[in-house]
Amino acid sequence: MRKNLGILGLLVAVFVLTAALEPNFLTAYNLQNTLRWTGLFGIISIGAAFVIITGGIDLSTGSVIALVGVLTPMMLVGAEWPLALVLLMVVALLLVLGLLHGILVTKLSLQPFVVTLCGLLFYRGLARWISGDQTQGFGAAFEGLRQLAIGRIVITDSFGLPIPFVVMVGLALIAGAVLNYTVWGRYMLALGHSEEAARYSGINTDRMIILAYIIAVMTAGLGGLLFALDVNSVQPAVHGNFYELYAIAAAVLGGCSLRGGEGSILGVVIGAAVLRLLYNAINILGISTQLEFAIIGAVILIGVIADEFVRRVTSSRQVHRAA
């Protein structure tokens, strides 16, 4: 928990500052929206965090989102397959993709960056080709299913918790439990610190790494389904573009080290919230949206520098105490 105080402070600071500058920020509608997007991006960030914790990286997230976003409406609406079959197909596809990433990284010792970069290119191309670059959507059908993305759990007359946010909280609880209370989570953290030492301790490191890539693709797929249901018009060429970078940024902001071995799910979720809040603040405060990336980039950089600074101070203190 203490590790997450910094990022939590940043969240509160951006929140308070924006609220002070623009009272409209606190309207139920705006808060709901921000929560919904936090939920959507939080889901894919949690998956990205698992791969990062093992010392890898997944760049294919955005393209997986596009592929799922294109395939699901095509199968449901276009081919009129039953919902259960479609979901089964999607899950099977995601399993295969995750397994493929993991096997290429472990058994062939390819670099994660390269494997998932190729995934990014390949799945995007596939999504555009299958759909003929035509915008896909559910039309007016599947209102019930779409509630998963656009629905909310009503709390007061004007405010309700968006379903994606609730889904994300559930996923975060499961992910947090896996990471901190199961042997698999412990193994992932350990091999993230040193794959060699983990192998010498008898851990099946290959299996754990493959598992991490499967988790990342599965959450990207879940996110992809929700994003598609949310926008209801999936443009194959641009849907999900750059989302892998948001996911990685949220994980890093939340305390994951790209060197592996470190990270907390709560931190990642807060990281995703900070990113969405910044995006929202830029819009609502009337800052030129052209500056969006610049501001987000600057905040991440400052956050990471501050984090590194704190780490150095505390670790040198520990060394002194040890001496």
Partner: peptide, 17 residues
Amino acid sequence: SQGILLNMETRPNISLG
């Protein structure tokens, strides 16, 4: 590099196997 996880705490290092 093979025996110990330097950046992990003592307890998980001991229990890892």
